[in-house]
């Protein structure tokens, strides 16, 4: 109620009608990126494979968010929600993986000790 008081483009936020061209182009670019991600996985890039795959996935997710979910035409706050959620999730994953990588040897050793024992 208070947000739309501020000057915005002619249309009201949320009533933007997506043109068929943009919708089709969005779907087409998602298909192309899917093809690229499959192709890139067949090339051995070592640890970079997962980085490339995630980069492409993030690009695809951004495209979905901006056009299919029409965030590009919405109140910026909705984008803040999605980015915040993604950021919290990313930090959650990276903190825990950071921790687990450090104690990996202890798990390996315990694993082997058990195998030796049994």
């Amino acid at each position: 109620m208070t947000e739309h008081a501020s000057a915005r483009p002619a249309h009201e936020p949320g009533t933007h009608v997506m043109s068929p061209g943009i919708l089709v182009a969005t779907a087409a670019s998602l298909m192309v990126l899917t093809a690229i991600t499959v192709t890139s996985s067949r090339i051995d890039l070592g640890p970079w494979n997962v980085v490339v795959a995630l980069a492409i996935a993030c690009t695809k997710a951004t495209i979905v968010a901006l056009f299919f979910m029409h965030l590009k035409y919405e109140n910026r706050f909705l984008m803040v929600i999605l980015i915040a959620a993604a950021l919290f999730a990313a930090l959650f994953v990276s903190f825990v993986v950071f921790d687990t990588v450090q104690y990996q040897p202890e798990i390996r050793a315990a694993d082997q000790a058990v195998r030796k024992g049994s």
């Binding site: 899917t34 991600t37 499959v38 996985s41 494979n49 997962v50 795959a53 995630l54 492409i56 996935a57 695809k60 997710a61 979905v64």
Partner: peptide, 10 residues
Amino acid sequence: IFLFPLLYLI
């Protein structure tokens, strides 16, 4: 979009 490469392609 994230599940596909992480599970099928890695």
